[in-house]
Write a protein that binds this DNA or RNA. Structure first.
Lengths: 277, 277
DNA sequence: GCGCAGCGATACCCGGCGGGTATGGATAAT
DNA sequence: ATTATCCATACCCGCCGGGTATCGCTGCGC
């Protein structure tokens, strides 16, 4: 299989429409049809069920779609990393969620900079999804928070674990409680909503937010309630309260990097990070 | 980047010789030179330093080599998994090291078979390196033993952790001790030797073995001393003794599977496995 | 029930690219 | 100095990827 075939297949599998997929790929529809047919022929497997009105994925097609997306991301990442490795001044790019790991991040950067042989660390702050730059090669290492961000296929070391609190205006009915359960919070109409992996928002009445910054602003304005790791409470705005949520899942901060990394600098950074856990 | 280019590059990077690489690929040398040059040109990066006498990898080339190997393995795995998903009778292939996890394995298979909706589990026993079939798509799930087998880029759940013992003939000088340190064992001239990742054996005087079966046979014949997880002691041959090695690293048995797996059967199996930890 | 619109498959053509052979040019060994 | 080795270059050819035109099927509207 060539990556061209995988790109074409992913386009068709996502659009479920040969015409639109061809347009997206910048080619005509017939060669696309032919390429997919060849791919199926060589695999000996039907990837798509097509009638003249509807295209749908077979079981094998669904499996290949997941694999192909990962492979194509890995190819893009490989290109970026090869280019990066050629730079005369080596550097390490670290991705982290904006406002996500304030103290850990600062301590880590300081501790690493003090190491002998340390190289410059570039910070890539993401409003959301800091694992994405790791997968597509824009970053060499990332600070992630399980279970919010997936660590599938990455190598990780745990840095710390923290409980979660519900953050809300002091005037909120739940604010006087000393402890909450998830059920209490989920019932609150002001509970902020995050986009799912496909970009759509779940049903609900709370505000829709796309980043931690937005969320904290909404909470600061008294417009939202949110469940967050207790670490973000340091420096909470005036008038807001944080109430422990006793049955919320613990949040684990991990340092993550792609497998096969063989850089000395990355190894040092990870060692420093896990050292002062 | 096309996988063809990556295959060509890996061949050259491994052979460090255009002629041999071309032969291995079944093509002539000039088109190979040209393809590598095109790849470098498009990446804007030199991957190889060549004189007319010697070819060597640049920094960028070394990075790309690691990435390319992983990508090519993923492509092969994707093909196999797509074919497998099309089979009318779904099945799950589990890889494990021969003789590696006797009890855990039996209990796991029984417990899973008792699940509602369980599908047949095929066993793929490997003399060594049970993680390889997972990476190239021959297996869907594997039982691995850290730190012996790498779990880079795989999703894992820990099943159990065990200490290690030194196994040797009862007549061995160390056999009367009640506890050993790694230094004691490493000094023993009968210490069996395993191949490293590149297939070569480290220096030493002990026998060279390639599988657990071979090793146990050698130990049973009184020809070798080995450090193994204590679990393998059950059913040790007559006349052999196992002495705890107090400072040996703990061995962790994990169940591992490739990321992006979305199979119901695999999820059930993992749940069952972690359930009776 | 007929016609039409939408969509994937097929037929066919063309140009570029991947692959081949021949050879040049550089370097180390003798 | 000569030769052997090895990568790059030059050049040619056939195949394959991409294009346009069109067919055939299907669901919808009247």
């Amino acid at each position: 299989m060539e990556t061209r075939e995988l790109r074409y297949f992913v386009a068709v599998a996502e659009e479920l429409h040969f015409g639109r997929a061809a347009e997206r790929l910048g080619i005509a529809q017939p060669p696309l049809s032919r390429t997919i047919a060849q791919l199926e022929h060589r695999l000996g497997v039907a990837l798509l069920e097509r009638t003249s009105r509807k295209v749908s994925l077979t079981n094998a097609g669904a499996v290949l779609l997941a694999e192909a997306r990962a492979i194509l991301a890995a190819v893009v990442a490989a290109e970026r990393r090869a280019r990066g490795a050629a730079a005369d001044r080596p550097s390490l790019v670290m991705a982290a969620k904006t406002g996500g790991s304030g103290e850990v991040l600062a301590k880590l950067l300081d501790a690493y900079a003090a190491e002998p042989g340390a190289i410059p660390v570039e910070l890539l702050l993401c409003e959301a999804n800091p694992h994405v730059p790791l997968l597509d090669g824009r970053a060499d290492v990332a600070l992630l928070h399980e279970p919010y961000e997936p660590t599938n296929g990455l190598d990780v070391e745990v840095l710390n674990t923290e409980a979660q609190v519900a953050v809300m205006p002091g005037s909120h009915p739940l604010a006087m409680r000393t402890g909450l359960r998830m059920a209490d919070v989920l019932a609150a109409p002001e509970l902020a909503r995050w986009p799912a992996a496909d970009g759509t928002y779940p049903d609900g009445t709370g505000v829709e937010v796309r980043s931690l910054t937005q969320l904290l602003q909404m909470v600061g304005l008294g417009r939202a309630v949110a469940v967050l790791p207790e670490g973000v409470c340091t420096g909470l705005a005036e008038g807001l309260v944080a109430v422990p949520v006793v049955d919320a899942p613990k949040v684990t901060t991990v340092i993550a990097w792609p497998p096969h990394s063989r850089s000395r600098a990355l190894a040092d950074l990870v060692r420093v990070a896990t050292g002062f856990s």
